[in-house]
């Protein structure tokens, strides 16, 4: 599915699966909940948000930097791999880059699956691997205004 395409609603079961990944420089527009699906009993939504501290230090915001070209490629390839590994129907992901203030979403993921278990497993795997291989980094904007690379790394 290409960026900017109109959001589909699925009124019937489909054999084809849909994967969408985007890296966006603006506030994330969430994927709409979908009441029209007939086969997917689980709709999982994850929002990752910016906390007010980084490694115990108060911050004003985070600035996400990405390796343009490679980050998009790695994110899409991870989404494809997740689709192949777990029994899920659709996976959508938006990751925001640039300056993000406290409380705003930096990551938005939605997964639809027939049953909850596969969806939850896929969500855990996707986010864990995203934090391991997609070239995106955080810079902390400190209360003093200084901008420093965050040393905060979470694997799980």
């Amino acid at each position: 599915m290409k960026m900017g395409m109109k959001w589909p609603l699925f009124h019937q079961s489909r054999a084809d699966k849909v994967v969408l990944t985007e890296i966006v420089p603006a506030p994330i527009v969430p994927f709409p909940s979908d009441n029209t699906r007939r086969e997917e009993g689980a709709e999982l939504v994850f929002n990752g948000r910016v906390r007010g501290t980084e490694q115990g230090q108060d911050i004003l915001a985070l600035e996400y930097e990405h390796y343009e070209g490679m980050a998009e490629q790695e994110l899409q390839s991870l989404a494809d791999e997740t689709m192949a590994k777990f029994l899920i129907q659709d996976l959508f992901c938006r990751h925001r880059v640039g300056r993000i203030t406290i409380g705003e979403a930096s990551l938005h993921v939605a997964i639809w699956s027939q049953h909850r278990k596969e969806g939850l497993q896929a969500m855990t795997y996707f986010i864990r691997e995203l934090k391991e291989r997609v070239p995106i980094w955080k810079w902390a904007i400190l209360v003093s205004g200084e901008r420093v690379p965050s040393e905060c790394v979470h694997r799980d």
Partner: peptide, 10 residues
């Protein structure tokens, strides 16, 4: 070429 420090997406 890029030397990629530990990534921090999410």
């Amino acid at each position: 070429v890029a030397f990629i420090p530990p990534v921090q997406g999410g």
